[in-house]
């Protein structure tokens, strides 16, 4: 399993490509993915960015129990909460 530093680095790096406007651990996160997903749907994007984000993270870090719905439904208030979840805390 990846270390917390590795998880943090991977999450922030992947967020950069969504793109996320404030990629820090304390950045608000609960509303971000809903907006991104709505935008992908409005513009007819073929593969949703939330799926690419999770795909790349799971390829880099191994499997973890976070789904697209977790992100879109706002299950993580801050970026650090997602890192907590991946780390398994």
């Amino acid at each position: 399993m990846a270390s917390r530093d590795e998880i943090q680095k991977a999450v922030l790096e992947e967020l950069k490509f969504v793109p996320f406007d404030k990629p820090t651990l304390n950045s608000p996160f609960n509303d971000f993915w809903k907006q991104v997903n709505d935008q992908d749907e409005r513009t007819g994007r073929g593969v949703r960015r939330v799926d690419i984000f999770l795909l790349h993270l799971k390829a880099a870090l191994g499997p973890f129990d976070v789904s697209r719905d977790d992100l879109i439904d706002g299950s993580f208030a801050k970026v650090s909460n997602l890192i907590d979840e991946i780390e398994g805390n």
Binding site: V47, D51, I52, R68
Partner: peptide, 16 residues
């Protein structure tokens, strides 16, 4: 689902 590289993207619920 949609395959992409070695992993599978779950596309269930992908609609608006």
């Amino acid at each position: 689902s949609a395959d992409m590289g070695p992993t599978t993207i779950d596309t269930s619920g992908v609609k608006q």
